[in-house]
Every structure is written in structure tokens, then in C-alpha cells.
Design a protein around this nucleic acid. Sequence first.
DNA 1: CATGAATGAGTGTTCATTCAT
DNA 2: AATGAATGAACACTCATTCAT
Lengths: 209, 209, 209, 209
Amino acid sequence: MLVPMKSPGRRKTTRRKPRQRRARQTVEAILDAVVRILKRERFDTITTNHIAEVAGVSIGSLYQYFPDKRAIFVALHGRHIEEIDRRIQRTLVENASSSLEGLLRAMIDAMIDAHAGDPALYHLLSTEVPHRADGTMDFAVRLHGVFRLAIAARPGELKKGRNLDALAFVAANMVESLSHAALSQRPATLSLADKKKEILRAVLSYLHS
Amino acid sequence: MLVPMKSPGRRKTTRRKPRQRRARQTVEAILDAVVRILKRERFDTITTNHIAEVAGVSIGSLYQYFPDKRAIFVALHGRHIEEIDRRIQRTLVENASSSLEGLLRAMIDAMIDAHAGDPALYHLLSTEVPHRADGTMDFAVRLHGVFRLAIAARPGELKKGRNLDALAFVAANMVESLSHAALSQRPATLSLADKKKEILRAVLSYLHS
Amino acid sequence: MLVPMKSPGRRKTTRRKPRQRRARQTVEAILDAVVRILKRERFDTITTNHIAEVAGVSIGSLYQYFPDKRAIFVALHGRHIEEIDRRIQRTLVENASSSLEGLLRAMIDAMIDAHAGDPALYHLLSTEVPHRADGTMDFAVRLHGVFRLAIAARPGELKKGRNLDALAFVAANMVESLSHAALSQRPATLSLADKKKEILRAVLSYLHS
Amino acid sequence: MLVPMKSPGRRKTTRRKPRQRRARQTVEAILDAVVRILKRERFDTITTNHIAEVAGVSIGSLYQYFPDKRAIFVALHGRHIEEIDRRIQRTLVENASSSLEGLLRAMIDAMIDAHAGDPALYHLLSTEVPHRADGTMDFAVRLHGVFRLAIAARPGELKKGRNLDALAFVAANMVESLSHAALSQRPATLSLADKKKEILRAVLSYLHS
DNA sequence: CATGAATGAGTGTTCATTCAT
DNA sequence: AATGAATGAACACTCATTCAT
């Protein structure tokens, strides 16, 4: 969860039980296998047996960790969203006393860096893997909340009379979609750094308008 | 197609051959059926037989118009994109001599109005129906082209030294994603009209920055 | 149904629709295939695909007629029981005015002749095919009813004071199980005719006791 | 084994090795578990893992005592038949000098009492658990032998000229199936004692006829 | 001997697609 | 063209069985 997480505290037990560590590894291997396959095949040609094979686990083990095929894709979306959430959360906290510009710059960096490991993954997930009711969309809502908080905490930097919801709605959407676009879209004339600068400029000029 | 279409000229033959009209109707019925089903079921539970049944045609007829199941979903995406393309194209032409603000306002109206008939459809298509290589994504590229043209044609309204690609990239993405967000996202405090105003404000303040 | 069937009237339409005739044939082919397989394999090694293959129909067609594997075995039991029911019913009616001895002789003949076509089938069904709640056992109850009727209609042939339920219970069970035993059990010294004679003697000496 | 067992002598070692006692207990626990499950589930939904769980042993242990799934059911049938066999055998010996009526009464009692502990078990085993070639059916043959012996040993109580095989065949089958019927069939008007009396009457009137 | 995680062959079943009518 | 019964390839998933611990 993004906003309501008060204490970012680490788990006390750094060492989990080997059983759990093993399970985690298997789940990760399966999700990674799905990503690998998704890059070659269309969604509807993916089979659970193929996933298991590529993941290097038996089909029986796969079903030990996932109740059915759908659950694998739900988990894949979940893993991605949680990763982004975590970064956004951290950025928000770490920039609690930064200026709006500093926070936004960090936010845009976070969004883009979060995808840098596999720039194609986001596009793959959003276009190839059905996810209507998998809680995916709620990400936008949570981001809206984060921006609401961030903006509300810096009243001095805004003109009077601006609607907080409108500002958060527009700014959150800008950061999210422009960051994604920066990664998956071409304008080859622009470097990633250039795009980041432009996104920041766009959000700031809106918030200050 | 969006940009490269020079003459928007109407087809000369207003009356098509009954054969073709019938075919068009059947195709439409099938695509409408898919939409209807998509609102109730998940993508992977949809069957061609069910589509045919809901469309009121025989499964044999369905295969008369679509070579295989995938083609149905490709056509569904195609129909949607073409509809938007058509509107954007028309808006661009109709506002050839408008100010940047006028054009942008019209563009935002077009994007939003295009989805007004079925506000959930876009979200459904983009989240539930796999479409990696269906030419869907190219829409963003085409929109970039449109904005490039539109901005380049109005040099007086911009500050000197701004990079045309950057401006088009950011502006096109803002209009597209904020319009979609305006339809499918909540901030219940904001009316659609409010959102339109904010989107316009955001794009303009960026372009003028 | 055995007892409660008042009018034995034939279906008016001697000629069914070809669709129905075809369906009936397919169902019969499938059930016959199961019997054929059962004679070679154990119950739990039978597969639906094998059944379909032996029946000469596609697995898809098989599932057009049976919702799942179990339904095939339920139908197999059903077919057998209905066949016996029909014969018992007919015998009862045809011997409405016979003496008790005549009726019993006919009943025993009916039971045994009903299995003559495939003497091993009954044993196969009762030992190899699970059928707890398939209405199979109700056969004994129905037979009890038939015997109750038959005995009650012939009070002159019994000693006074005999309990009708007791007589029907014992007689019905004797006819059913001795008939089955006559077919599936060896005493090779005895011909089937001898066994029939002994069964009749046993039932009569009990009823007259 | 029923007939060929000459000396019923007890095992000399009352105390078995703990290893064997433990093994016996585990086997019993497993068979009991199967019975318990059979009362709730259909045969084909029973799994070895479920059996092990209900029996309170690990699946590995289960396979220590049974080579495969089928063996469990074979053993279950075996346990039941041996129990009946033992009783019949004892009854035969204990009534070596009884009259035919006394022996038959004891035999019927033995058959019925043997099932009194779990009246539903016999029906369950015979209808739900496939057992074609598990030696189950041989029970009827063995019982025939027992009756042959019993009747042959009491020539004075029969009419001259009666065929010994016929008498044994009919009598053995009557006792077996009527006893089973007495337990699992309704005629609620009849008490179990009444049924016993009627069964005895039926067998005697036949043998004396 | 006991355990139970892991295996993977095998099964029931579905559903895209065909084609005789 | 239209139909929809029939097909059978292919898949999700189970569960009997093994074996490392």
C-alpha cells in the first residue's frame, strides 16, 4: 500500500525460514519465466506447462504456489505494482522536506528508474496481460493520494485558490503517464535525461500556473 | 490513419452493394457482442461460440468474417482507434486557423467526446484485451505527429528555442492520457468540465513555459 | 419406473426425429463401448478418450451427450435397470390373472432372460462400477412393491395370518438374488433350467409355508 | 479361507513383535480412514493423500504398507470378507452337532451380527468399491461349500432324492442375500428379529420341501 | 522407519475451427 | 451464404508415487 503505510520499518527477522525463502525463490522464478515468455509469445499462447518448464520447476510445484493460471498473472502485476509503490513511498518520505521541485524531480526519477531494469516490462504488462480487476488500476488512485499529500504540504509554492484535487489529479497523471511514455516511446531526438527535464518542467509550470 | 491522410474526401458511392452493407452489419454485431461480453466476463473466458451467440449469428458466419479468434479482437481495437483517429483528424482540419488554445481545447473535447458514448470501453480495451502488436500503440506516435504539425504551424505562440519534438511529445501524451484519466478516474470532486479546463490549462502552461 | 406407471401406452410418434434417433444411437454406442472396455480393463483405468475411441465417436461428441465422465456410468446403470424394470412391469401385467406359481415362474424367467443377452454384464456393473447413489439400489425397493401387489392380489393361495410385507420382502429378494446367482455362479452340476426350477420351488415353498 | 481350514488353532505367540503390532495398527488406521471417507465421498474422488491424512499417517508411511492405491481397497474388501469367513467358520464348528434348524439359525445370526457393527459398510463396499477380481466373489463359492457340508451331514432332515448341489446353492444364496437385505432394506414394518425369523422360515421350508 | 515436498505422466474437458448440408 | 453438429488438438490441473532428508 502506498499512502497509509506509516512505518516503513524493516521486518525484524532478516533471516526467514528456509522454507519461506525457497518458496519465494520459486515464485520469483515462475514470474520471471512468464516475463521471459511474454517477450516471445502472445498472451493466449502461453501455457502453464511452458511456464513451469522455463522456470525450471515441475508443473506440480507451480500449482503448489498458484491456485490456477490466472493467479500467476495477477501475481505478476502485483509484483510490479508493489515495486513501484515501494519506490514512490520511499521517495515521498525521503523528500519530506524537499521543495516541490526537488520532490517532483525525485518522483519522476523514481518512476523512470523503477522501469529501467526492464524498460519493456511495463508496456508488456499493460498491453498483453489482462488485468481489469486485479487492483492494478488502483495504482492511479494511490498515486493521486500521494500527490495530494505532497502538494498540500507545500502551500507556499502554489498560487492561491487552486483546487487541490485538480492539481493532484493532473500532476499524478502527468508524472505517471509521461514517465511511462518516456521509456516506451520513440522521439529518438530526445535523450531520457531530456525527457525527464521536460516532464519536470511540464508539471512545475502546471502547478505554478 | 491519422496524419498521412491528405484528402478526407467522402466515398463517391453513398450506396454500397447490399452484400457489403450486410457484411458490415454482421461485423459490427460481432464486435458489439464482444464488448457486451467483455463487460461481464474476463478475456480468457470469452469463446467464439459465445460471441456468435450474443451477436445473433452462427459460428459459421462468424468465421466467414474473421479468419480466427484473434482477428476479432484486433478488429475491435482497430475500430476504436479508427474512430478516435477520425475525430482527431477532423479536429485538426477544422481548427487549421484557430489559435493554439482553440485547437487544444477542441482536441481535448474530441478525445473526451470520442469516449463519451461508452466511457468504460477504452479502459476495457486497454486492460482486458491483449494488443501488443496490433498497431494500437502506434496511435501515440501518430498523435505525436499531429501535435508536431499543430505546434510547428503556430511558432508565434511559443517561446524561442523550445524543442519541437519535446513539446509535441509532452503535449500529445498529456492530452491523451489526461483525457482518458478524466473519464475513468474518480476524483469525484471534479466535474468533467473542470477536468477539461485543468487539462487545457496544464497543456497551455507547459507549451508557454 | 416400475410400479407407479399406470398407462403403459406407447409413444404416439413411432418415428422420432432423425436428430433424436441419431442421438440415441450415439448414446448407445458409447454405453456399449464402456461395457466392452469394462470386460478387459479395471474401472479406474477407463478413460473418456478411450471410451470415445471404442465407441467410434469423437471425444467432443461424447461430451455433447454426457456432462462428465460419471454421467456415462450412471447412464449405464440406468439403462440396465430400466431394461429390467420394463420386463418386470410387462410380466406383472401379462400375468395379472395367472396363478401365483405362474406369475413367479414368469418373473424368474423374466429376471434371468433379461440377463441372458450378456450374462456377465450384471456382475460387471454391480462389482466394478461404483453406483452408491445412482438410484440403483432403489430397484430392490421397487421390486418389493411389485411383489407386494402380486401377493396381495392372490390371498387365496396363502396361509392366513402371514405378514404381507415379510412375504414380499423375502420373495422379492429371493427372486432377484437367486436369479442373479443362477447366472453368475457355477455349480456346474446344475443347468440353468434346473436352477430356475429350484428357485421357483424355493419361493413357492416359502410363500406357502 | 473358509472351508479348507481344518484347525482353528490360535497363534501360539499372543504377543507379536512391537514392529508388527505397530504395522497392524497403521494398516487398520488406513482401512478405517478409507471407510470414513467412503461415507462422505464417491469412490473416484478419494485420493491416497486424503486417506493418509484422515488416517493420521504420512503419505510415505501409507506406501510402506500398500504397494499402490488399489491394494488399499483390495485389503479393505479382504478384511471384511475374512471377518465374515471367520464367523461362518466358527459357527459351523460350534454347531457341528446342532440340528439343521439350529445351525441355520446360528448362521443367519452370524451373517447379520457380523454387519451389526457397521450396517452400512457392506452396502458401501459392494456398491462403491470396484472389486471384480479381488477374490470377493469367491465368498459365494466358499459359502456354497459350507452349506454343502452342513446339509450333507444331516441327511435325515431332508426328503429323499433332493440334489445336494441345488440345495446348497439355493440355501447359501438365500442366507447371504437375505441377511444383507435385512440390514440395508427398509420394510420398516419389520423388525430385524422378524426378518431373521422369516429368513429362517424361508430356508427351512425350502430345504424341507 | 517416517516424512511430505516434489515430480510429471496422464486425464477430463474445452473450444477454435471445419464442412456437410 | 448460412448453419451448427462434429471434430480432436491442446490445455489446465490432479494426484499416485518417489526419495532426499
